[in-house]
Amino acid sequence: MNIVFSTTRQWNPGDEFIFMGCMNLLSHHINDFNPIIYNRNPQTRRARKVDIVKAIDNFLGKDFIEKFLDNSVKDRFPMDYADMVVFAGSPEWRGRRMKKLYDSVIEFNIPTIFLGLGTSGKFSFTDEHFTKTEQEVFKSALLITTRDANTLEGLKPVTAYQLPCPALFSSKESRTVKSVKKIGLMYGTNSAVACNNVSNETYIYMMEMYRNILKDFGEEYEFEFVSHYIDELSSFKKDFENHKLRYSYDAKDYLEIYKQYDLVIGYRVHGIGISASMGIPGIMFAHDERAVTVKGFGAELVSVGTDYQELKTLIKNTIKEIEGKSTKLQDHKKSTMKKYLSLFNEKIK
């Protein structure tokens, strides 16, 4: 089978962790398939209301002005090769950037599944929030799962199921953490590009918490920072010059990076997710509505602005209970896998 996955490449590693999880999930139901990506990277696929350059290229039937050389689904070429389309969980699972994908599903009558859809706000399944084409695709979907209650409520007119985000399956392996020796801290800034940055309030809060954590726990545990986006590298040298930062351009490398830790703390939802997939508990700085996703990863949530002493107590208790939390996390992963596969067996023939 040729399966097209909606994801991003070289933009937000979290999207690629979800993609990895979706592929691992599907491999239990469909033994062999060719993974193809529909790359939503805004550098590759723009979402302008009026794009004269693209209109000219489409009219001429060639990439005459603007070259689209990315090794992914292209706008001009037909998706007649696709046997299935998987809309992998992310807040961007509809809208202008997704038009080609929805149009192709209708044009070629391609079976679709939506896995782990999430949102940062409430919406309704109406013309106000969905195009006619999007509504048609949703109504004919084989399976729809959401990772939060708002999305489940918004999709009430179509049958959907609430399950943890597929990033929970991004790693094929997991382990039981018996004690804490090494802790990963997720670094982020307010100066990175939109959608890969945090607010000034969140940035200031995290820097204060991390400095306190290093002061109070630094002699007992080994710490490393983890960065997901290149814009963060320069700022890190100014904020924590004498500490180690782990980063890679390749999302798959984060399996090896997060694998080293016994506990992770930070603001990246899917940094918590890929760690949970390996049996590693997490503590999440909840800086926007999407943070509720980590409940599906068995993580603790700390709202931005929470007093440090409260966070310190939570860290101590988590370390004390680490083996039980890790075991519970692995059991949760197995039971969630069974629920997904049960739906696959029922819905995807």
Rank of each mutant, 00 (worst) to 15 (best):
G118A: 05
K295A: 09
I204T: 12
G188Q: 15
G296H: 10
K338H: 13
V226A: 09
Y247C: 06
D250L: 03
K328E: 08
L245N: 00
K252V: 09
I52W: 04
S342N: 11
F123G: 02
I348G: 01
L245W: 01
K320S: 13
F68D: 15
D32P: 01
N71E: 12
A286M: 06
L168S: 00
Y340I: 12
G118K: 03
K347D: 01
D253S: 03
H287T: 07
G271H: 02
I272C: 01
N150Q: 15
R268T: 05
S227D: 07
R96Y: 07
L233S: 10
L168D: 00
E136K: 13
I319T: 07
Y261N: 11
G61E: 09
N31S: 10
V73A: 11
K122P: 08
M284W: 02
D148F: 12
I3L: 00
H270Y: 11
K244C: 04
D127N: 15
L255E: 08
G61W: 06
G61F: 08
K156A: 12
A192N: 10
K259E: 12
Y249F: 06
F5L: 10
G184P: 09
N197S: 10
N150V: 14
D239W: 01
H129T: 14
H29I: 11
D75I: 14
N41Y: 12
K139A: 06
F138G: 05
T313M: 13
D262Q: 10
T112K: 01
L115R: 08
M207W: 00
F217R: 03
S171Y: 07
A160W: 00
R9E: 11
E66W: 11
V137F: 02
P157I: 08
E220L: 12
G279L: 04
R76C: 07
K49W: 11
L117W: 01
H332E: 06
K349P: 03
T126Q: 04
M84Y: 06
A141S: 10
K74Q: 15
L117E: 06
R96D: 11
K237P: 07
E153T: 15
G296L: 09
Y254Q: 03
F87C: 02
S235I: 12
L168Q: 00
D75W: 13
T126G: 03
K325W: 11
S179D: 13
K320A: 14
K74I: 14
N150M: 15
M186R: 03
D75R: 15
K325S: 12
E321H: 06
R48N: 12
S326F: 01
D75F: 14
V198R: 00
L233C: 10
V292R: 07
K67S: 13
N24T: 06
I56Q: 05
T327I: 13
K182N: 11
